[in-house]
Design a protein around this nucleic acid. Structure first.
Lengths: 207, 207, 207, 207
DNA sequence: TATGAATGAGCGTTCATTCAT
DNA sequence: AATGAATGAACGCTCATTCAT
């Protein structure tokens, strides 16, 4: 019995989480009502409170989920490549693919939404959110250093700064895509970024 | 009578605008209450309505101000340089300088805040906001084309995509700075970006 | 569950409707607050919105109820009589009986209240309200024509005008009763009206 | 100086009173704001308070004025006729003429508005308002008694009730006209009423 | 005397949260 | 475990009234 119940609980939590993410994105964290989230999860208004003690906690959980998804995506990308630069390109491709996918527009908005929330009320979901980007930068920095060591990228470039730049580029592309919709060609931006990485090869190796 | 009143009116409007910007940023557009904005402007709640007919209009005005400021900044930067690439660098410097200034953190957040609002309820301030970034991309594209024509930038690069990339980079840097605070070295990112632009010079021109 | 809920819902709606009618009359549509209406219905302020989407809808519902009641009253009166003049008298008796009943003072005030509202903001409940009196006049006109055809009323009288006059008399009596309270003998007015109808018999039939 | 000032004060009071009456009628007592009334009187918002201590007092004064106007109209009508029945007809003609005049629609609405207000908050303007109709009924009763004495009206009719009936008819006609606008032919109603009064002549006198 | 900016109480309405069922 | 009716605090906004000028 315990097992079944436990499974049910997790299933419900997941359903609520998905419903909440959907509504947070569709209408904004503030405008999304618990009623709507409950309806989206085929539940009644009060039922959510059996699984999450408050709307804030729900937001935290939703963002935490987004964080995990991102981390996973990253791990997968690095695992399937050998050269450091190849890994960087693979990660870039995966990351920008998400931006082309209309479905991921929601993730971008959730990211912005939670970034704003994080900046404002540092306690609710600040640290968690912060750590994702910090971790991404660290990973990218590591890969860039590897690429520099193997002569794929000019050693004169500040690895940490380049990592931050790449992440900024990706976040900014998402923001633009969000705002300008189809007007902005995210793939073209990706090509520019990929091209730039190639250009950052040491002068000697490009003769 | 008229003089004092007219001056007062403009002063009040400015004070309210500043107070609103401050509160919108500090607590978010939705969470910021008219009471708080009024208090921040040393006014009573209802007094704001003598100057702005609704909270939405206040938001619009605040964002409109940000928009104007951005446009001005751009115009100034382009006016004081001769070569296209120099103009790009000048603009980059000016743009990134704003990110270093803790005071401009507010502008970034307002931008995000209004982007989210624009995406969701396109009517309130969507178009205006959208057009700013569209205009920026167009201007950058123009400068890049000039630089390509004068041999400062490789003609093989998609000018429009590069323009979008640069803007995305800047927006993303702002976002990161917002989230990670002092941990992220925005000036270092700027250096990387400037360096990348240099690297985009045609191969021939680079010895 | 369903049974109890459904019954409760209707009961609540009724209670709210009655409370609203009471407060609209007691303090005026504008002065009556949702808080007061809720309190009168032993509910909290926000609870009303589960049953009626706005104060305007509540007003509409309250007036619609009054309308239905009036129509019913009329139908009943006409159904139980044979001669047209008898029907007229029956209707008069029923109508004036309502005026004697202190409880119906509320209906009169609601009528005035909604007339004023209708005249000013035709949309909210104007047409509905208007049609009631229009319908009443039409019905009365029909009966008067019948009575004229059967020689009970002088054919020289303008049936439509007489119908309007009778309705005006009734409305005005209500108004007077409202204003002068017990000082005005509504039954005496009714007698006068009934007597007048008799006097309107064709000269020939009065030997 | 005192005289001039006094005259000015009265002029201002009159202007404010007229402006208030106009706005009370146009938008309803509650919806009419002091700002609007002031604007209508070419005054600033606060200036009214030099002449009337509150909006309630303004309402009282406005209604008092309407009362006086009515009384005057009545006096004039009775002064110019000899026979009692002629006076009744004259009064009827004058009264109904006001209903035909679109400008007097405002008076009707003010009357209803103030009746409602009187019924609800008996102190503010209740008694004054009440006395007008009481006085009218008394006057009519007197005339009817005279007419009965001189054989113009059947002595069997309850004079007081007939007076109330006539007043009710007039009030109700105003109400109907208000609600149904041009659809209701107030003059036709007047004809009916006049005709009815004729029919109330003693049987003997009608051969 | 007149202005009109400012106040502040109060309105209709919404919604996170609770709790009897 | 789940419901959904109810609460109550707060929000945006309006306006009668006050008061420095």
């Amino acid at each position: 019995m315990a097992k079944v119940t436990q499974a049910h609980i997790e299933a419900r939590k997941g359903a609520i989480l998905r419903a909440a993410a959907r509504m947070f994105v569709r209408k904004g964290v503030d405008a999304a009502t618990m009623q709507e989230i409950a309806a989206e999860a085929d539940l009644s208004a009060g039922a959510i409170y059996r699984y999450f003690p408050s709307k804030d906690d729900l937001l935290r959980a939703v963002c935490g989920g987004a964080v995990d998804a991102t981390r996973e995506m990253f791990d997968r990308a690095t695992a399937t490549t050998s050269s450091a630069r190849a890994a960087l390109h693979e990660i870039g491709t995966a990351a920008w693919a998400k931006l082309s996918d209309p479905a991921s527009r929601e993730d971008v908005m959730l990211g912005l939404e939670s970034t704003l929330a994080a900046v404002r009320q540092g306690d609710v979901l600040g640290d968690e959110r912060r750590q994702v980007n910090r971790a991404i930068i660290e990973m990218l920095t590591g890969l860039i250093r590897e690429a520099q060591a193997s002569g794929e990228i000019d050693a004169g470039v500040d690895a940490d700064a380049l990592a931050a730049t790449l992440l900024a580029c990706h976040l900014g592309t998402g923001l633009l895509a969000l705002q300008l919709g189809g007007e902005v060609d995210t793939d073209a931006i990706h090509e520019v970024v990929a091209h730039v990485i190639d250009r950052l090869a040491p002068a000697a190796s490009r003769s």
